[in-house]
Design a protein around this nucleic acid. Structure first.
Lengths: 245, 245
DNA sequence: CGACGCTTTGACACAACTCAACAACCGTGG
DNA sequence: CCACGGTTGTTGAGTTGTGTCAAAGCGTCG
């Protein structure tokens, strides 16, 4: 793994080796970046969006706004994540994406994406794998909100987040930066912000996890996983071996 | 639309015209069916599954079992739905699929599926569209459980179900058959079965919807949609025009 | 006939929401 | 420099939606 590889290349490379040509293709497609400022929205629910964004750095927030004004956050895209790729075949995006912090992204238009799938099928498979993995996480999120208690949801959320950040090297010393407010967490977990606060206090009192100045520290991973009912994603989300394709 | 077309062909045909060759390919892949008996499981969470099933008739139940024994139902596959296609690139299925009624399915192994994508790219796109649409429904389901009240969830669920069944011609006279028990509904909506019963009574008392002998009748669609905060899926899930590809 | 699965109802408990208030922190502008 | 409003975090008190437990009714099927 080269130190100057993009987060997406690092992530895909974790699961299948990438050739020089494929790495060049990835580098090429991410050669021009731009910054979305904190708070700005760059995918708009209900509007046409035949563009995918590759997150280079920063945190996004993919959410769905209900007619009554409620907001449900689907996921928080971070470095290495593909954003909006599901909407490529739909007439309109079914969700919005906003920048939680300043976010650096690369833009990939649909024709270019289709080219990649055609010219680099192996790389295309890796991208499909990442998409399948993302969808599996949405399903897990669904199960979490539907069937776990508030504290279990919170525990599960941070464990999954930690694993995602590890994939792209953002958990250097066992703790990680997390710019989310308790309001963001509330809309992700299907709770009220006030209840999130109480739950976080509980996790702190149980010596499982603390958040201080937007740094998350997991103190007792084993106990936290037991509380959350957390399965290692490796158990399920691993790409099948090449020869099986 | 030919009367003997498979539900999948009907569904895909609703959104893009299919050529004779494509229809033949679809017919060919669905030429051998078999029945899964009521209650039997045909995709097993945690096990390898490089097979997709196309539902011909009957109702399935795609669910995820949590470590604590809780069950969250993701969706109920019906005629024309593809089952397990997400797991094709993952080492193990992240969910289980069970037959709610006897289900007739066609089995498509991964290599065959990849062939279709290669030989009939236009058809492949239609399949990808169906997958995107399914994922959008999972996202909507997530928002529903996270941010809607019990009665709104139930209302939304039946409206979406109705639209899905209409797509394959299973809502002939404004009402439709639904073999689900209140336990099934509970696990889908993230509620207890007892509360589902209370909510269904409420919907009946409001003259919005009744279920009698597994037939669902919507009495006041407008009011039900207002209650649920329901957007027509056509607004978002329509396939882009061919020339845009 | 009895056993079983599903629905329905009531009484009660509790998890999570709402409202209200305050503290800490921030950037901004006077 | 400090005053200020806005955002975020924290806590308490009271309410409510939903879960749990228990029991009965009612089909169906063996």
């Amino acid at each position: 793994m080269k130190s100057d590889a993009s987060p997406l290349a690092v992530k895909l490379g974790t699961f299948m080796p990438l050739s020089q040509g494929e790495l060049r293709c990835l580098a090429d497609v991410q050669s021009s970046n731009f910054t979305v400022l904190r708070g700005e929205q760059f995918v708009h629910q209900g509007e046409t969006c035949h563009t995918t964004f590759i997150v280079q750095s920063g945190w996004g927030c993919s959410s769905k706004v209900l007619p009554d004004g409620g907001r449900q956050i689907i996921t928080f895209p971070v470095a290495g994540d593909l954003v909006g790729i599901r909407s490529i075949l739909l007439r309109a995006a079914d969700h919005s994406v906003t920048a939680v912090t300043d976010v650096v992204v690369s833009k990939v238009e649909m024709p270019r994406m289709l080219e990649i799938f055609k010219d680099f099928p192996h790389l295309g498979t890796a991208i499909l794998w990442a998409m399948s993995r993302d969808e599996a996480m949405v399903v897990e999120h669904l199960a979490s909100i539907g069937r776990r208690s508030a504290i279990e949801r919170a525990a599960h959320f941070f464990l999954e987040l930690c694993d995602r950040l590890k994939l792209v090297g953002l958990v250097p010393d066992g703790k990680f930066h997390c710019p989310l407010t308790q309001y963001d967490l509330a809309d992700a977990l299907g709770l009220s912000a006030i209840h999130v606060n109480r739950v976080m206090r509980k996790l702190r009192e149980l010596d499982l996890l603390t958040v201080k100045e937007h740094m998350v520290t997991i103190h007792d991973e084993r106990a936290l996983k037991d509380l959350a009912g957390y399965d290692n994603p490796e158990d399920g989300a691993v790409l099948i071996r090449d020869q099986e394709l």
